[in-house]
Design a binder for these strands. Structure first.
Lengths: 251, 251
DNA sequence: CAACATGTTGTATATTATGCAACATTCAAA
DNA sequence: TTTGAATGTTGCATAATATACAACATGTTG
């Protein structure tokens, strides 16, 4: 069904270009005439999946997308199952707790639970983080073989901070350490001043990985160090891995 | 673009039938053969908007839907603008704070902020509530004229609890009271034992309504009564209505 | 086991998505 | 302001594709 495939490509383009699409832009990327791109986007908007800004004429995500995503979360039991334990973990550590799944060389954030403190480092669900720099990403990569990881990264990973690992070999060494340690660490590799640790789970039936992480600003652990947070995360991991039953905790 | 219109209908059907679609079901509702429905859903799954359960063969929402919805929230500034103040309101009242927009005779929940207490009455964003029974729904209906409301409800509103208003006349009397009071009340009309109050805002430019509500179990106000929550909500409303500037606080 | 649903795939045909062109707007530079 | 280019939309003939029908494999139910 080719016209639907094109619609999917347009939606992917929307996500990748930051949430706004213009007709001309779409026509160029999907190699169709402006006229047909116009008709395509208009149809998507007619259904409510997109909506067109009456002023700028740009297309954005519509309300239907929120409704579909809600049914995703309802079906993806894991998110709801994990919610309470994530809230407990956020309470214990006083920091933001994340849940993410792999998406190519990125991590798709499915849920965030903010800690009790007013200022928290977090994004809304649906955002994607670069896997090589995020703790969740490295925890998920650690579930794969080195060979698979090399195949995934065609180019060298992008540098985001001075701490980011920018070569695949360097990344693989870090991931080997992650496997030994049992948890992944991102020390300011994604954002300056922010550390995060993460454990990865694997659902053998769906052959899908899930990661849970805790992120925290450096200054918050000046006195206590990382250990209390690591302990809390590992305790969470043991409880979560067994409680879910058919979801196996791998690391 | 007819095939895209059909895809939109299928997605709408997915949402309305609770998050799972079967090929046969789709073919019947959209009046197409099973073969073509199979091809349609397979295309949507190829793009990641849906995914097919390998065991049951049923189609569910896919990861792309979460990504699109995220870009919706990013663009719909209001949700992000409101987040901090909603968190403050949840802290003050110690109850769940909701943000919703109208969707026919229902309210689409765009955001929930849970109160600090462990057990909270809340749903995930994307769910829809019946407008005639939810406080947010009545706050939003109060922005419309009685004539518009009558046109919206073709049949009598559905009964959900013993308190639900099940005739349009009864509902209109309640909404008239809402307009006078400045806020809407749902006293166990949606769920037994749960009250909620709500105020509605209107964005004159987008000609779109937005409601904020606080929900709380009856037992939690045995000593204090509703007034503290009402005061907090109205203070929020003044702040929110003026702070946004171009969004007018209507009630 | 039989009768029945269900999901998928192949093929000829008829519907439809496409390319091209024209038009109205918008925007930037002259 | 004027000119020129870029943008979004619509109409139309044609080529591409979505469709109906059928057959098949695989559960499901009586």
């Amino acid at each position: 069904m080719k016209s639907i495939d094109k619609a999917m490509s347009a939606l992917r383009l929307l996500v990748d270009s930051g949430g706004e699409l213009r007709v001309g832009e779409t026509s160029r990327h999907l190699k169709m005439t402006r006229g047909n791109a116009s008709r395509l986007l208009a149809s998507l908007a007619r259904g409510g999946l997109l909506e067109q800004d009456p002023v700028t004429q740009r297309y954005r995500a519509g309300i239907l997308s929120v409704e579909i995503a809600a049914s995703f979360h309802r079906n993806f039991d894991l998110v709801e199952e994990a919610r309470k334990e994530m809230e407990e973990l956020a309470r214990q550590t006083e920091h933001t707790v994340w849940l993410g799944v792999p998406s190519g060389t990125e991590v798709l954030v499915l849920k965030t639970v903010r800690g009790p403190q007013p200022i928290q480092f977090a994004v809304e669900p649906g955002h994607r983080l670069p896997a090589h720099a995020a703790a969740m990403g490295k925890a998920l990569l650690a579930l794969k073989s080195d060979q698979e990881i090399r195949a995934l990264f065609s180019a060298d990973p992008e540098s985001l901070t001075t701490q980011t690992k920018t070569s695949i070999d360097e990344l693989l060494r870090d991931i080997a350490m992650t496997r030994m340690r049992g948890y992944a660490v991102s020390n300011q590799e994604l954002f300056e001043g922010v550390k995060a640790i993460s454990v990865g789970f694997e659902d053998p039936q769906k052959s899908m990985g899930v990661a849970i992480s805790v992120s925290y600003p450096l200054f918050s652990i000046e006195k206590t160090g990382d250990q209390p947070i690591i302990d809390a995360l590992l305790m969470f991991a043991r409880s979560f891995g067994t409680r879910i039953g058919d979801k196996r905790w791998v690391l």
